[in-house]
């Protein structure tokens, strides 16, 4: 829950506050309403907490954060499993 996980926006969805995001291979709808003023576009990287994007990040940071998360083991895989179960609309 406290882990911020990076994901890449792949597609904007019909609701203005939703985007489809690829997080370590898991593709899920994520709420981008908190980045309303940041003009989120496909190809952007975002930091996600509990289904919401909290900030835009650059690709290098995303790569570094992913490498770090992959290293921490179960805390991250549990979070990804939970995300895979998630079905936000």
């Amino acid at each position: 829950m406290c882990l911020g996980i990076p994901g890449e926006v792949i597609e904007l969805l019909d609701r203005p506050d939703l985007a489809k995001v690829n997080v370590s291979g898991v593709r899920r709808a994520i709420n981008i309403g908190l980045l309303e003023n940041e003009n989120v576009q496909p190809g952007d990287w975002i930091l996600i907490h509990v289904g919401f994007a909290l900030s835009k990040i650059d690709e290098d940071e995303a790569a570094a954060a992913l490498a770090f998360l992959e290293g921490i083991g179960t805390a991250y895989t549990d979070e990804l499993d939970a995300l895979a179960e998630s079905n936000i609309e």
Binding site: N31, V50, G51, A82, S86, I88
Partner: peptide
């Protein structure tokens, strides 16, 4: 039930 996001709870 366990949820990933409060929005899952809404669902």
């Amino acid at each position: 039930r366990m949820v990933y996001s409060p929005l899952d709870s809404l669902k």
